[in-house]
Design a protein around this nucleic acid. Structure first.
Lengths: 341, 341
DNA sequence: TGTCATTTTGGGAACGTTCCCTCTCGAATT
DNA sequence: AATTCGAGAGGGAACGTTCCCAAAATGACA
């Protein structure tokens, strides 16, 4: 059996050279070594089935060539596509990427932080549940954050311009003739400040000279369950057909759940009520009716995160980088057009 | 600045003990050490902000406490939920889990294999694209396979009893009055053997004394695109309304795509045609109409995989384990009931 | 107070690499 | 023919732990 025992020493012996020479051959740093030696070493490696122990190498070099992408929910295409894009880019540079799914659990996040701290990864791309920047910086590992909640902070960041994206959606509803727009989103970060979506909503109403109706502002979790909740609350509005004609949802998961729940209860989205989501996840085109939404450029975000991380690894002292991408309206069929009614 | 330099030595010095004692304290192996020493060491650790270098420890102990879960598509809820279940179980035992997404690419898979081989992980749970068992065993890392394609092979495996699950679906269609059942699935592994779903289909027809019509057997990719393809081919069957009344799809992604495409083309699933899927992914309940399908017990599969891996790590010599779970019919609204017509 | 068992401690080797430094040897230059 | 040079090779320290073993401290008991 070719069991674990083969180290650089055995190879050196078999090839008739020193372990230093073997090291030169296998670590492609290219210290000068003769053709003869290279051949002999490669031969011995083949023969013995030698496999480099990366742990030992990492101990010496402090490089692992592994990157951790830590996201809240791998099952959400929004996150998994960002991860995939980042992975593509990072693998081009010789890094391997693994994904950590926190499932929105603090405990899991902590666990991954612990992992990251112990010098197992050369870098970190993450969307943090807790957003404790101090903690992240304390890890001693180059890190790039995804999402703009922490835009003001002292760390590399890439995300979408959520406020602009929100206004894009609202503007579309407005142009379709809607004047009583409801909003449903989560209130991340407690009451300390309004969520960006909500802030954009307020600003938008003001710009258009529309009144703000607190009864049309829903705070729910951005999940399937949140969608059911939302519809229940929504339909409980007295006289809702008079009072509200459209609904902006904080993300597509929520919007899709709402669409399905509305339909189940006999209210037809795209006909009785307008719904717009945000993200443009793949399922957005599978609903009935298909969901009009604002696409976030997942590909770009992932790639950008990877690139920023790479340059940060190369130069830890380089100036902070923050990149925000615009959203893009994707028109489908979940919005009523009043003009054409 | 508390920069990297703090090792076990510094701690030892600060605590006035030897590095051996420090080691005893931090590696919770519990060699006997006095209360006084424990206190002194913990104090010093706190003071200096010492953080254990796991690489070094791993080098010595050959344990990394990391597990790689390698799956083909992290965006497919089927896989991500298995991963999550496995993660839950493994974390209970002190392991950390990272996910590798191969996206069905051989190159990525190879990359992860390389990673696994270099003793970075204590174990591996995977669904392999290539199913090269020799390769996997050659990694020298305990591994558990997911899926039953390789059931005959020399490696721990857990999966669903796909043939039984398929028959469950077919039986349901049969009971609903369907006598002309089409099947659409992928033909993994070339022509060497029929896919399990297809084999179950043939057996089922035989049992019921139904004729096999090659024109009702579709080979497509189990993806959204595959679904569009499928519907195109399906509707091209001359006189299809006479010739076929139901369609079994190899997985839910395919079935959902087919539902949407059928509806788009004016054929109403659950009314003009029966459709049954397989997996029961979350979106199966979001389609219009909601999809009747056979649920695969993702939770159980993930947990079982984790447990088998754990015991394999503990005892590399223990006998091979293979576990197959039954599927479960989930009735929704995508099947026509001929009796009640 | 001495003996013995038991707990606690420390020194050093080991894990498998990389890296620094020195040394050799043959070729090129003078 | 003597000197210089550079490519190639080897020896050993270092990375930061754990583990083995022997030594020292403690305490129980006679």
């Amino acid at each position: 059996m070719t069991k674990s025992k083969i180290s650089i020493h055995e190879v050196a012996e078999a090839a008739g050279v020193s372990k230093s020479t073997v090291s030169r051959v296998i670590s492609d740093k290219g210290g000068s070594v003769s053709r003869r030696s290279v051949l002999a070493v490669n031969n011995a490696i083949e023969q013995l089935g030698y496999k480099k122990n990366v742990m030992a190498a990492s101990l010496r070099t402090q490089k692992t060539y592994m990157i951790l992408v830590m996201i809240p929910d791998v099952a959400n295409p929004f996150w998994s596509e960002i991860a995939r894009a980042a992975q593509d880019r990072l693998e081009m540079e010789g890094y391997s990427v693994v994904i950590g799914s926190t499932d929105w659990h603090d405990a899991r996040e902590t666990r991954y932080f612990e992992l990251a701290r112990s010098s197992r990864f050369d870098g970190l791309i993450l969307n943090s549940v807790t957003d404790d920047i101090g903690l992240i910086k304390g890890l001693g590992v180059p890190a790039v954050l995804i999402g703009e909640r922490v835009a003001g902070q002292d760390i590399d960041t890439v995300g979408t311009d959520t406020m602009a994206a929100t206004k894009l959606a609202l503007q579309y509803l407005y142009e379709a003739g809607s004047r009583h727009i409801a909003i449903a989103t989560s209130d991340y970060g407690g009451e300390r400040y309004l969520s960006l979506r909500r802030r954009a909503y307020r600003e938008f109403l003001e710009t258009k000279g529309l009144a703000f109706d607190p009864g049309l502002s829903f705070s729910v979790r951005l999940s399937k369950e949140g969608g059911k909740d939302l519809v229940r609350q929504f339909l409980a509005i007295p006289d809702w057909r008079q009072r509200v004609d459209s609904l902006f949802c904080g993300n597509d998961i929520l919007a899709i759940a709402a669409i399905n729940e509305f339909r189940r209860l006999g209210v037809m989205p795209g006909k009785d009520i307008s719904i717009v989501g945000m993200d443009d996840i793949p399922d957005a085109s599978n609903t009935y009716p298909p969901l009009t939404t604002v696409r976030k450029p997942r590909q770009l975000i992932g790639t950008a995160a990877a690139e920023i991380l790479l340059s940060r690894i190369k130069d830890p002292e380089k100036p902070l980088e923050k990149r925000l991408f615009p959203g893009q309206l994707v028109v489908r069929e979940s919005v009523v057009h009043k003009g054409n009614k």
